[in-house]
Write a protein that binds this DNA or RNA. Sequence first.
DNA 1: TATTAGTCTATCTTTTTTATAGGTTTTATG
DNA 2: CATAAAACCTATAAAAAAGATAGACTAATA
Lengths: 138, 138
Amino acid sequence: MLSKKTQYAFHALVHLAENVDKGPILISEIAQEKNISIKFLENILLELKNAGILGSKKGKGGGYYLMRPPKEIALAKIIRLLDGPIALLPCVSLNYYERCENCRDEAVCGLNEVMGKVRDSALKILENKTLKDILTRS
Amino acid sequence: MLSKKTQYAFHALVHLAENVDKGPILISEIAQEKNISIKFLENILLELKNAGILGSKKGKGGGYYLMRPPKEIALAKIIRLLDGPIALLPCVSLNYYERCENCRDEAVCGLNEVMGKVRDSALKILENKTLKDILTRS
DNA sequence: TATTAGTCTATCTTTTTTATAGGTTTTATG
DNA sequence: CATAAAACCTATAAAAAAGATAGACTAATA
């Protein structure tokens, strides 16, 4: 399961994407709209900003906004940033690989093989679907 | 990511499957072979037994054994038992569903839709692949 | 210069994960 | 029948991660 942090991030990003034309959006607005603790959300948005996904403006009229159009922000990127590996096992992770401590040879491990396929099938979706694809359907 | 508990369970089950013809297998043998803490493994095997996946025999000559042939034990079943939901979000889980607290209507939520697809693609593999499919390739 | 709104860092609480300890029960066997 | 072997059971502890909050700081605007 994705952490609350990542779930909140998705909902916040959706809100930002659905209001791209309205300039910077307040943290407090997102928090209220999406029913998220404002202080917790603050940290999340900051992390997204430091990763280059969001931009921000301080002071009156300030807030957060997307740095790129929604269709260019892949879901996989958000998950990896806030949640870490998408794979079910460290030994099949592309970005957070760790050697398996419980088997002799990953090259002939059937678990490694199957979990690799699960990873691929998830990535096929998560690398190609973007913020644009998760907007609320009218 | 799967918990260590689930990872250990898979490795233990593989060992049992690869030795089906040898009668009951000692916890200590599995622990040593797969490099797992024996006491932790004890709890895991007991849980698998209580779920009807393993059988056991006490006393000398005792140990654990599979209750069904490896090809009848789906990977999804093990994950759900020890790790819980396979889905990335509670609101798309088939077995551990929880209503989304952050969106107004799941029926029109794009995140819900995409994550449902991720779940389906993972389940297509995990429901159909069995212990037999994760044995070490000769 | 007052107000607004994001920034930063630290801390705290709760939950989950991982692991260990130690006694109990069952079974085989000499 | 005594002994040893091995699983069973329950509790607890230690560590890590998740979730949440606090408060002072900085920048921008009017």
